[in-house]
Design a protein around this nucleic acid. Structure first.
Lengths: 229, 229
DNA sequence: ACAAAAGTGTTTTATTTACACCCATGA
DNA sequence: TCATGGGTGTAAATAAAACACTTTTGT
């Protein structure tokens, strides 16, 4: 068998597709590259994984560096290993996506990026490296999992209206839903609780504010419940 | 920023969970390790990825080496990067699973393995390295995707009976299905075609043989059909 | 009083489930 | 002729879809 030392010549990176939701618009956090290659192009935030660092830790580190937040929803999506995807050598990258409440953070220039911006997913048609392909893979997985796991809440403020929740689903999945049927479905699940608060300062009847009830969700799952939109 | 040359010290491997179906039993192809570490333990077939080799090519190579077959269904599942998952250094492994028609091949000792065996999934409770965890991740994804994509056929001979197909679903998903309802659902999809042949040599009324109709499946998908069991 | 979004049930339609007997073959 | 699995339809229950008006607030 070939001497395995021959092979310890690759690098591992992590790229993190950070999704945020903003009033009917799904956005991702992009950085403008400050060095070659792809100088000046928009790219996904990512970095090489340290030799003694777990993959997930790297993904969290990247996000923390840009936003100073931690404990966000993080999901591994796919690994991209194209031989010539990086000009400096063999770099395999593990793609993750994160879901954050966009309103509660303001990304800042950092070690990784002088310029950083929330960009509407639908306006993106190119990114540095193979990052456009990576973003699309993450978007596809988000669409799929949004229907099968209660992760939509991660993109909303802690308290949200049912209309906001519905708009989130409509935006990401890309089809419009019936208001009454949507509410019926959600409330039948019994996994959101009424906060007994209301919107303020809106020029119409104020909506009730709800929050995701994680305890209830866990109990329901134990009893055989499976989330599905 | 740290000099990136510091990081080109990792190795990438691919592990391939090869599933086969055998008369009500889901099996995986395991090899017995012929060297340290984990000498003598059962493990997944896998190998380091060559510096100029695509990940998928590596997965196919491993399978071809063991079975001399190619063009099988292959799906990337997850990447495992635990810092100390391999005693010889940082080895990130990308897990794939393959679906093969177990009856049409006989695995043979090879470059990778002196001993190789089909082992019933339900009898496995330990494997070398983190391979047990890897196998379980692949099994979970197989279960999920079997319901959402027409990949079950990959595990069967080209021609199969509806009872065989049903047994496959029952075995992998782990719940029993109603015969008439199952047949109704499958035939309404219009993606399998009657071969006009029958079983022979069985001590009961011989069953019709069907095959998966990939053209029909593609046409149906274009018209908005989505497979679901 | 008007504009704007919130909130709320019923009917219709489609889908899913439950269920039992006759058929063709080999032994 | 018996044992074995193959093959088939209908009715009931459940879930999904369609649909319109009243309420509450700010301006």
């Amino acid at each position: 068998m070939t001497n395995s030392r021959e092979y310890f010549k690759s690098a591992i990176s992590v790229d993190n597709v950070v999704f945020g939701f903003d009033n009917g618009d799904l956005k991702v956090l992009l950085i403008k590259r400050g060095e070659e290659p792809f100088l000046g192009d928009w790219a996904l935030p990512g970095d090489l994984v340290l030799l003694e660092e777990e993959l997930e830790d790297a993904a969290n580190r990247i996000l923390y560096d840009l936003t100073a937040i931690s404990n966000v929803y993080l999901e591994q999506v796919k690994t991209f290993g194209g031989v010539s995807r990086h000009p400096k050598g063999r770099v395999i990258t593990v793609a993750y996506f994160s879901l954050v409440n966009k309103n509660k953070l303001n990304p800042k220039a950092s070690m990784f990026a002088k310029e950083i911006e929330w960009v509407s997913v639908k306006s993106i048609d190119y990114l540095a490296f193979d990052h456009f392909e990576i973003m699309n893979a993450c978007l596809a997985q988000l669409k799929q999992n949004l229907k099968l796991k209660p992760i939509g809440f991660e993109l909303l403020p802690e308290q949200f209206t049912l209309t906001e929740l519905q708009l989130l689903y409509e935006t990401v999945i890309g089809e419009s839903l019936d208001k009454r049927n949507f509410r019926k479905k959600i409330s039948k699940m019994g996994i959101i609780k009424d906060s007994n608060k209301y919107q303020t300062g809106v020029a119409h009847r104020p909506a009730r504010l709800f929050c995701f009830d994680e305890d209830m969700y866990r109990k329901a799952v134990e009893e055989g419940f499976t989330f599905e939109i």
